[in-house]
Design a protein around this nucleic acid. Sequence first.
DNA 1: AAACCATCCAACCGCATGTTT
DNA 2: TAAACATGCGGTTGGATGGTT
Length: 314
Amino acid sequence: MGRAPCCDKANVKRGPWSPEEDATLKSYVESHGTGGNWIALPRKAGLRRCGKSCRLRWLNYLRPDIKHGGFTEEEDNTICSLYLQMGSRWSVIASQLPGRTDNDVKNYWNTKLRKKMIAGKINLTTSTSSSQATPINHATALPASSTSIVPPCFPKTETHDSAFPNLQTQNSAVSNLTDNINHGYSQRVSFNPYLCNPRFMDFSEFGTSTTTCNNSPINVNYSSSQEGSSISDSPAIGDHKHCTESMQPGGGNVCEEDAGILMEFGFGLPYYDIVNGIPFEEKASEIACMSLADCTSVSSIIPHGLNQSVINYY
DNA sequence: AAACCATCCAACCGCATGTTT
DNA sequence: TAAACATGCGGTTGGATGGTT
């Protein structure tokens, strides 16, 4: 049985809010509060709007503490850093940025920041005070501004990707991460390792952090400090050309050219763009769009068995 | 000036989860 | 305990706007 609609869609206004509606909603909420019931609010306030719409309008626009205007470099860093750690948990990310809403952060990421990061214009190491690489402490790897409520590796709530039906049982690293999630953090436990940043893994356990490009090593550096951590690769993304190698079954290298960008670690974890923190689907689009002009084919950099997923994606 | 294109972002949608009955 | 209801979240859409041809 499906859910009943939250409101009578035929009798509610939709689309952009008028200044009058804004004023009505603002004045009502400021004088009466929400009463803990957004569904009933529009009727009480005399608005012909869906309660969800009122809530969204208030939270994203009318709230007095909303910060409008451009994002600062520090905010850029925070967003990128948190995105790398937890993926698209916009509400959690926004909670670290006073005055910013999840919708704001999401829009900003999708329209500007992601491109900025791909272009290498985001320096995630700027906030660190120590350059010495140390084992990542899960409890301290978040930026200084973050609070302890954010887990080191936040589980995505949605169901796992059908392309990787057995990920949860594929290796102990995933289990360990799940343990980390469950330890002291009881919310939602459908674990999607795509959105778990490899920076939180002990890579020594898996034995690789270096791969090659044109027979030259590409070092993927994982470093951390008390205030943050960073991932960098060398050479730069744009320098990877003439890639010809194809993926080997069972954990061989990715198209070597882009191994520093798009890594398959060979221990069962799926693709995760460790530079940009972009899970497989997003990566698949970028493969076509930007980074692998000289690869023989898209499938050459996708693990066997995933090719169809890529094709389907397109 | 008009047509086209790209970008931005407010708003909507569906789903998952929490709460109440 | 189950169903109904409410809330919060992330993904997506589409209109507005500005830039380019």
